[in-house]
Design a protein around this nucleic acid. Structure first.
Lengths: 368, 368
DNA sequence: CTGAAAGCGCTTACAG
DNA sequence: CTGAAAGCGCTTACAG
């Protein structure tokens, strides 16, 4: 069966048996209309169940029946180009492998679905350059709104200013920076939770604290290190007893970072370690196990985010919780305010609290 | 400034200052062409860098400059309706909260990107009904190809048979069933790995084995329980020493299931527990900790999937590895074979091996 | 190079 | 109810 002609003659639909499944055309609205013997606009009215539809019950039934028989499904792309909306909202997340963002995606998807929208996810891979590409890409897709978890929002201030004027509703979740954004912003008061953590450590006799931090690709500095040092100094920690160790965003990387931290401080090891997120905390927990340190007897470990895994680890991981529920709730609320035109005000900002959740991985410093 | 007319007069673009950002129209190709003083087809040729483009260097420069000045970005939707491809492939996953699927998504996205395609993710939430909706929804989106991680592929055999004839390339990853699918299939030989695990347990003196299993919403049976019982019987385990405990797909649920399992077998507790995935394994690990069982001294624990978390847990989790790399590699290969029309053959099937990865959570049964 | 047109698949307004 | 048309924003073939 040498079938060299690639295209089938227009209007001449050939059967599966003739050409194999790949060459059968998907039925269009006109195909349904023809099959039912009605005009295409009639078919459109019937299939969309328009209130002012003129079709008789008989016509109606015939159209629906033919649509079903042919397996007709409206072409959403064509529909979108006509309506100029795609009923889709776009989400940008830095890391698919971080459960924190996936919990967020999970909740956002549920909320979007409840309003009749699909969610599509873009992945910036903890890379500032990619993050920019994601922003472009998601805008090119003509989504109806964007929720962007950005690694470093201020970096994109100029880009957003020049693009957002075309009116796509957007809310950013991430740290505030010096440069204001032209879109709604949700920030978490990381300082608050970190302050709780550090003062807990101080109170329970810890004096030397390690901080495992990570920068994204193409990122020069994210300010977290300074925040950590400032708060710690204010609480009376001695600067020379504060150890900052760079890592990447993986658990394995954090484990390595932990080992470097321990090795480089043989004489006066940290009595507590804070990871910039829970994956780092998990890496530290395992790193401690590897070198025979018992948590929390010999070392306290604290993570950030409070992912659902934390209470199930051994020992369970103390963490500075980010309020995922609130973040997703406000993100959806603020976004749909814009989408539905309820708000015309300028950029809004919502600051949410972080909170230290104490679990088994923390305790008094040794000898207390 | 009461601006009651919603639409602006066609062609009359109003400034930001006049209406606020939300009313400014996104520039179209014709806007760029007009601004540059060329025909739209010329602008199209220039912007798409067509080889047989007739534009002079000067024209070319003018078009590019105006495009940049206006911030022109092609409308992908309009483009897609014209080209009848969206340069997008769709992925269906059962659970965003399971790192296994996210690792898969991560790799698939990378591979798709390398070929110039975006990946969009649909989430079936471990629910058979939703899974069906995802299939419909993703086909409605006119993606160029679909990779579907299905909870229970055979259930969808009829649906797929009636829809796939419109030619959308698709590969399914999941368990094989009695009813053949009309699309390419990648399966993992779960029996192989489970056999390795059970014979390891047998060899190391275990006699009573618990199995924490879960069904999806709307799923009657997934066959895994039978597989487990069959293999175990064949290896000489006594049927009355095989305990099957139902759970859900969360870690917390698995922990509860573990507790039920232990409580109901007070007299002769299991010496080993196998979870149907690593999240269940983690739940069991924590459940054991809760009741003072030491792993692996008092109890061996085995998971399934071998997510990247396994080696970082305390104790690290023995797991029946699914070959994520191979799955994603074959999925992409098979899919693009179809997309690029390299293959016209009927449905193909690829079976990949699973393998037991021994770690700290398993050891000889107590008293050996 | 231009200009007008067709077409992707849909919806909607309009004259009969 | 029909039929023809316009339009969403693009690409492409065609006559000048």
């Amino acid at each position: 069966m040498d079938n060299s002609g690639k295209k089938s003659a227009p209007g001449m639909k050939r059967s599966v048996a003739e050409n194999g499944p790949m060459d059968v055309k998907r039925p269009r609205l006109v195909d349904v209309a023809k099959a039912a013997g009605v005009a295409t606009n009639t078919a459109s009215m019937v299939l969309n169940d328009r209130p002012n539809c003129w079709a008789s019950e008989a016509t109606r039934a015939r159209v629906l029946e033919e649509a079903k028989r042919l397996g007709y499904r409206p072409n959403r792309i064509a529909l979108a180009v006509k309506k100029r909306r795609f009923d889709t909202i776009g989400l940008i997340v830095p890391d698919l492998n971080n459960p924190f963002f996936m919990s967020l995606a999970d909740q956002l998807e549920l909320a979007a679905e409840a309003r009749g929208y699909d969610l599509i996810i873009e992945h910036s891979r903890v890379d500032l350059l990619r993050e920019m590409k994601c922003l472009e890409s998601i805008m090119d897709r003509q989504v109806d709104g964007i929720i962007a978890c950005l690694i470093d929002p201020p970096v994109h201030a100029d880009f957003l200013k020049s693009h957002i004027k075309y009116g796509i509703p957007m809310v950013v979740a991430g740290q505030r920076g010096a440069r204001p954004l032209p879109v709604d912003l949700i920030t978490v008061d990381f300082e608050g939770g970190l302050g709780q953590a550090l003062s807990y450590l101080r109170r329970t006799g810890h004096s030397r604290v390690g901080f495992i931090r990570a920068l994204a690709e193409n990122q020069a500095d994210n300010g977290r290190q300074e925040i950590f040092l400032n708060i710690a100094r204010n609480l009376g920690f001695d600067e020379k007893d504060l150890y900052v160790e760079p890592s990447d965003h993986t658990m394995a990387g954090a484990k390595e970072a932990f080992h470097r931290l321990i090795d480089s401080r043989k004489g006066n090891p940290p009595t507590a370690v804070i990871g910039l997120n829970d994956l780092c905390g998990i890496g530290a927990l395992r790193g401690a196990h590897d070198v025979g340190l018992q948590v929390p007897r010999d070392l306290s470990v604290i993570g950030v985010d409070d992912i659902s895994l934390c209470p199930l680890l051994n020992p369970s991981l103390t963490s500075i919780a980010q309020p995922i529920d609130e973040i997703s709730q406000y993100a959806v609320e603020m976004l749909f305010d814009r989408i539905e035109g309820k708000t015309k005000e300028g950029p809004r900002e919502k600051v949410l609290a972080s909170q230290l959740i104490l679990r088994e991985s923390t305790g008094p410093a040794r000898g207390r």
